[in-house]
Computed example of a mutant assay.
Amino acid sequence: MDLFEALYTRRSIRSFTDAAVAEADLETLLRAAMAAPSAGNAQPWHFVAVTERAVLDAIPGIHPYAAMCKTAQAAVVVCAELALEKYPGNWVLDCAAATQNLMLAARGLGIGSVWCGLYPQQERMTAMAGLLRLPEGVAPHALVVLGHPAQEFKKIDRFKPERIHRNGW
């Protein structure tokens, strides 16, 4: 798929078929996530791939906007090992870049995705860390729910020229 087609047609997909997400596709998504830029090339990220039905079904009890996990076949929780970051606080940006790469790769493979934020909601972060048994010093940043879409990818033009300023405001 053309890069710009993927960019312009990527949508939050919340309705999935019951088809499994192939392990090879999950690896492709994780490789794309790890190709993201990071401050000082620290690459502080870790990823928890979730495919067990019991874990997917438990997530909506942690995240109020993640009900789609009940029908999804996979999810990835993007985390940061805080000791790996070179510039304190940049782990949030690093993980956001990895999350976006993962979602664009999913679109390129025809896999639906939706980003459910964990950071900065401390109660969600703590609960997700407990569910996934994250070690001390690893912070969950984002939940990306994945599956084969049961809805269309639609192109929506969100370009707003009035939001562009040149050489100053």
Rank of each mutant, 00 (worst) to 15 (best):
T28S: 12
Q43T: 11
A97Q: 08
P140W: 00
A80W: 11
A105P: 07
A75K: 04
A75M: 13
I13K: 06
N41A: 15
I164T: 12
T126C: 11
K154M: 03
W91L: 02
Q43E: 12
E5F: 02
W115T: 13
D157G: 05
A66H: 11
P64Q: 13
M125D: 01
K155D: 00
A42V: 00
V78G: 11
G40Q: 05
F47I: 06
T17A: 04
K160E: 14
A67L: 07
H141N: 13
Q121Y: 12
A98K: 03
P161M: 04
G112M: 06
W169R: 08
V92I: 15
D18Q: 15
A49F: 06
L84V: 02
G110T: 08
G117T: 10
A20S: 14
P140H: 04
L7I: 14
A19H: 15
V21I: 06
D94E: 07
E27A: 10
Q43W: 01
F159D: 15
T51I: 08
A106R: 00
N167D: 09
C69T: 14
P161L: 05
L134E: 07
I13G: 02
A127F: 00
H63L: 10
V55K: 02
R163M: 08
W115Y: 15
A139V: 12
V48K: 08
C116W: 03
L3P: 15
I59A: 07
H63K: 10
V78R: 06
A150G: 13
L131Q: 06
A58D: 09
Y65I: 01
R124Y: 06
T28C: 12
A105Y: 03
L131K: 03
A98L: 05
R31I: 10
L3E: 13
I164Y: 11
F47W: 13
T9H: 00
L30I: 15
R158Y: 01
T71A: 11
E27G: 15
R31Q: 15
V138S: 07
H141L: 09
L7T: 03
L132T: 06
I59P: 05
I13F: 01
E123P: 03
V114S: 02
I62A: 13
A83E: 15
A72R: 08
Q43G: 04
L29Y: 06
E85W: 00
P88H: 11
L131W: 01
L84Q: 14
S38H: 08
G137Y: 01
P37L: 00
P64V: 01
Y8V: 00
R166F: 13
Q100V: 12
V55N: 04
A58G: 07
P161G: 11
G147H: 11
R166E: 09
T71E: 13
L102K: 02
V55Y: 00
L104E: 01
R107M: 06
A32Y: 02
R14D: 09
K155E: 04
K86R: 11
R133M: 15
A36N: 05
A98I: 04
H165N: 11
F153P: 10
A75G: 05
T71M: 11
L26W: 02
P140I: 03
Q122K: 10
G130N: 14
A24N: 09
E152D: 12
V92L: 03
P149R: 01
L146G: 04
I111A: 08
I62M: 04
T51E: 05
